[in-house]
Nucleic acid binder design. Structure first.
Length: 800
RNA sequence: GCGGGUAUGGUGGAACGGCAGACACGCCGGUCUUAGGAACCGGUUCGCAAGAGUGUGGGUUCAAAUCCCACUACCCGCACCA
């Protein structure tokens, strides 16, 4: 019989929606399950098969949970602020609001066509003023607690987008949005003090179930290191030069110092420095290079010696030269280092190039040839001499430094504070007012949301100022504190603001008194399982954990960590094995696949194509294979009759129920589907199955291909939805066969297989095995050294 | 350079230390058809065979794709982080 997937899928999507069966209940006696997927940015291009894969994993888990009797919250929304929409608006003159609404409508209809079991009553849109009101509210809490502040600093700036970018948004020296080269610019910018939460973010990882590589990436990103700050005095001017080192145990090997070209010492000691011109020239040369170029020049060390002053090593009084060089960054540590060329590769390169002394203080290497970074007994190090253990040497030295008052133990992080303002239109306005009398004043909470004003021009100004700066009615306001004339902040928040707390809003999306009701938060949080892309592991995932932890410290959310479990899906590659991209023309449109094969086939194929966490190329032919599979499932009705179990199929059914149940929990969707395919093949080999068995099969398949399963379920006389039917149970004792096939090896080589009753004893197994012609031939005339029997698995006869 | 990962047929991929290649694609042969780029049935790691075989080389074990050591290649993330 021909299966009309288009009509069937439409029918069930409408019925599900009318019956509200996927809506979560806030009050329920059932156990709760909160499954979260990363909400999409509604781009004009529409959905991508990658989106479908990203949602399909927890879609299957959520559907299974419902059938297992859980109260499931599986929401979706739209992360709609951001540059692509704004750039489109600049190009076409269409208001971003309109573009966003249009794109959201498009995404919504596409998602519904795939039959996802989202709770559509809880959708959120980060650009909705009833949503961003609370984004602004949380920002203000940070401001009030000193976590949002302004500072002048060298920032990453994209000359093409004309915006300041965070470190996370400019990885590799390129703008994350337009891929232009980033330049360093000194600007007065907003920061969120995420570094204050570095330790908490690190510690929190110990209590959550994230994939190990996700944890590792976060640990690396936070980049905590332990070491010491040491003060060197500067001869020639009355200044202390503070450095940071992770190796205070090598202090006796210091032969020079290096400071960043922008280091303030140069100005402080300006009158003592005799080669100021050369230093300034070098600094200007460096500022022309982007940070990326600086890091590319890894091999060639450059620098200039500062003439007229020198450093003094606090542990031995030795006078040492000070250089400026761009391999030392102002942004990490103190912007100054003590150089130990014998035991640091960079210092070694520099010393070789400038002909500086190299003093060995840890023996074990050959410092004539290269820097030795390994461990060994200290030498040339006064009171450290002979200590072979690095940790011990560091500890002895640190205690000495602290006793003498010349250094302290300290920690450093690679993570920097989060540059938080953007000079663009399509973002949340930062709710701050500048008053000539009162300074920076927060907008009162009852005046939120601070709405985005209407503008005609969406493009940023030539000077890099926000489009909002041109709107006088917006800019000019009264100071909320003193009532005098004041001006508003005209920058907006970055794309990542709205997504830093969205999972809380799903819990109570229509609340106008708070971002979410505490009782509901207590019921639903934490998110039980969060799935998303690996590309968000160092940005969104860290940002949102930071916001959540801050709210926890304020007592506004019930747990220290937002996500109990985090997994990630792999990419879908193009049919050519390359990453899908418009320019390569290898993008697969999910809508076309649905039109051609149906949503069930699309869903099944995406989960069948391989390991969910790994990248795999798209294959149209394999899609057809899944279509064949589902149509053969539909044909099962024709051979189903009677009730109870079919003896020849019983153990296979119990095994499959077990395998599918366990595999879904481990996200091994490909093997779960393979097990169902295998069972289907067995059923057709057998020739018939019972109605009861068909109902088991259909329920197991339902999370993957729900439409066709509902259709079959209904045709079997069921009045309620298959999507709400109980998840099949299995009987462990029936998953084992009464007769098992056992491999027989001689000297570890397979010779034959034998059939034995389950749990046959060792003697019977060996006797049966020896009767096999191939086995007897292999052992004939040889001495049996050993006979190994693993019950129900294998017999191995070792001969000599 | 550092951190993480991957390596199995023509392809995507399966295999609690215990019969490698489940499941699917593709291909080959067949059935039915005016037709087949539809559907169904059978075959399909390589080799005529004995045998060989999970990136390479060692090791542990009665037994290794799986555990250990050394290496190679590719992918991802970070990168002069002191």
């Amino acid at each position: 019989m021909k299966y009309d997937y288009l009509a069937v899928e439409k029918k069930w999507q409408e019925r599900w929606e009318n019956a509200h069966i996927f809506e979560a209940r806030d009050n329920s006696d059932k156990p709760k399950f909160y499954g979260l997927v990363e909400f999409p940015y509604p781009s004009g291009a529409g959905m991508h098969v990658g989106h479908i894969k990203a949602y399909s994993g927890l879609e299957v888990v959520s559907r299974k949970r419902r059938m297992q009797g859980y109260n499931v919250l599986f929401p979706i929304g739209f992360d709609a602020f951001g540059l692509p929409t704004e750039n489109y608006a600049i190009k076409t003159g269409i208001h971003p609001r309109e573009v966003t609404d249009r794109n959201i409508a498009k995404f919504t209809s596409q998602l519904k066509r795939v039959g996802f079991s989202f709770d559509w009553t809880r959708t959120i849109d980060t650009t909705d003023e009833n949503y961003y009101k609370w984004t602004q509210y949380i920002f203000l809490q940070m401001f009030k607690h000193g976590l949002a502040f302004r500072d002048t600093a060298l920032v990453n700036y994209c000359p093409s987008c004309k915006v300041v970018l965070s470190n996370e948004d400019s990885q590799g020296g390129h703008c994350d949005i337009c891929h232009s080269e980033i330049i360093q610019k000194s600007k007065d910018v907003w920061y969120l003090r995420i570094t204050k939460y570095a330790d908490k973010l690190l510690e929190g990882l110990e209590h959550v179930d994230y994939l190990p590589n996700i944890k590792q990436q976060q640990v690396n990103w936070i980049g905590k290191s332990k070491g010491a700050f040491v003060d060197f005095s500067v001869e020639g001017c009355d200044e202390k030069l503070r450095i940071y080192t992770t190796r205070p145990d090598t202090l006796f090997g210091v032969t020079f110092m290096v400071i960043a070209p922008e280091h303030p010492l140069i100005q402080k000691c300006a009158d003592k420095i005799s080669n100021m011109d050369a230093l300034v020239a070098y600094r200007e040369e460096c500022s022309k290079k982007t940070e990326f170029q600086r890091t590319q020049l890894v091999k060639e060390k450059t620098g200039v010696k500062i003439e007229g002053i020198c450093g003094v090593n606090p542990v031995n009084g030795k006078k040492i030269p000070i250089y400026i060089a761009d391999y030392v960054m102002m942004g990490y540590g103190t912007g100054a280092i003590m150089a130990v060329p014998a035991h640091d590769e960079r210092d070694y390169d520099f010393a070789k190039k400038f002909g500086l002394d190299i003093i060995e203080v840890v023996s074990g290497g050959d410092i004539e040839k290269s820097a030795y970074v390994g461990d060994g007994p200290r030498v040339n190090s006064d009171f450290l001499n002979g200590i072979a253990d690095k940790a011990e040497a560091i500890s002895v030295m640190t205690q000495y430094l602290e006793k003498k008052g010349i250094g302290v133990e300290g920690v450093q992080y690679k993570m920097k504070d989060w540059a938080f303002n953007r000079q663009r239109y399509w973002g949340e306005p930062i709710p701050i007012v500048y008053c000539p009398k009162c300074g920076m004043v927060d907008v009162p909470e009852d005046e939120l949301p601070l709405k985005l004003p209407e503008v005609r021009e969406f493009a940023p100004g030539e000077g890099g100022e926000s489009p909002l700066a041109k709107i006088d009615e917006f800019v000019n306001c009264k100071c909320p504190r003193c009532g005098g004339p004041a001006k508003r902040e005209t920058d907006t928040m970055p794309q990542w603001a709205g997504s830093s707390w969205y999972f809380l809003r799903y819990i109570d999306p229509h609340n106008d008194k708070s971002f979410a009701d505490p009782a509901k938060l207590k019921y639903w949080m934490p998110v039980d399982w969060y799935n998303g892309g690996m590309e968000h592991v160092t940005r969104h995932l860290i940002y949102s954990r930071f916001w959540y932890r801050f709210l926890y410290d304020l007592g506004m959310v019930p747990t220290p960590e937002p996500y109990a479990k985090r997994t990630a899906q792999g990419l879908i590659l193009g049919p050519d094995g390359d990453k899908m991209s418009k320019s390569k023309g290898n993008v697969v449109d999910p809508n076309e696949v649905v039109n051609e094969y149906g949503a069930d086939v699309l869903r099944t194929y995406i989960l069948f194509m391989g390991d969910y966490g790994a990248a795999a190329p798209w294959s149209e032919n394999s899609v057809k294979g899944c279509k064949r599979f589902l149509e053969r499932v539909y044909d099962l009705k024709g051979i189903a009759n009677g009730s109870g179990e079919t003896p020849a199929l019983a153990s296979s059914f119990h095994k499959t129920v077990k395998k599918v149940s366990l595999d879904i929990e481990e996200m091994k969707f490909n093997t779960a589907i393979a097990a169902l395919m295998g069972l289907l093949n067995e059923i057709f080999d057998c020739g018939s199955l019972t109605i009861d068995e068909l109902k088991v099969f259909v329920r197991l398949l339902c999370p993957f291909a729900p439409h066709i399963c509902e259709e079959i379920w209904e045709s079997l006389g069921e009045k309620n939805f298959c999507s709400l039917a109980s998840w099949p149970e299995y009987d462990e004792s029936k998953t084992v066969d009464s007769v098992v096939e056992i491999a027989v090896q001689v000297n570890g080589k397979l010779k034959s297989t034998i059939s034995l009753p389950l749990n046959a004893d060792k003697t019977l197994a060996i006797e049966t095995a020896k009767k096999e012609p191939k086995v007897s031939a292999a052992i004939d005339g040889k001495t049996i050294v050993k006979e190994i029997v693993v019950p129900n698995k294998i017999v191995n006869i070792v001969v000599k």
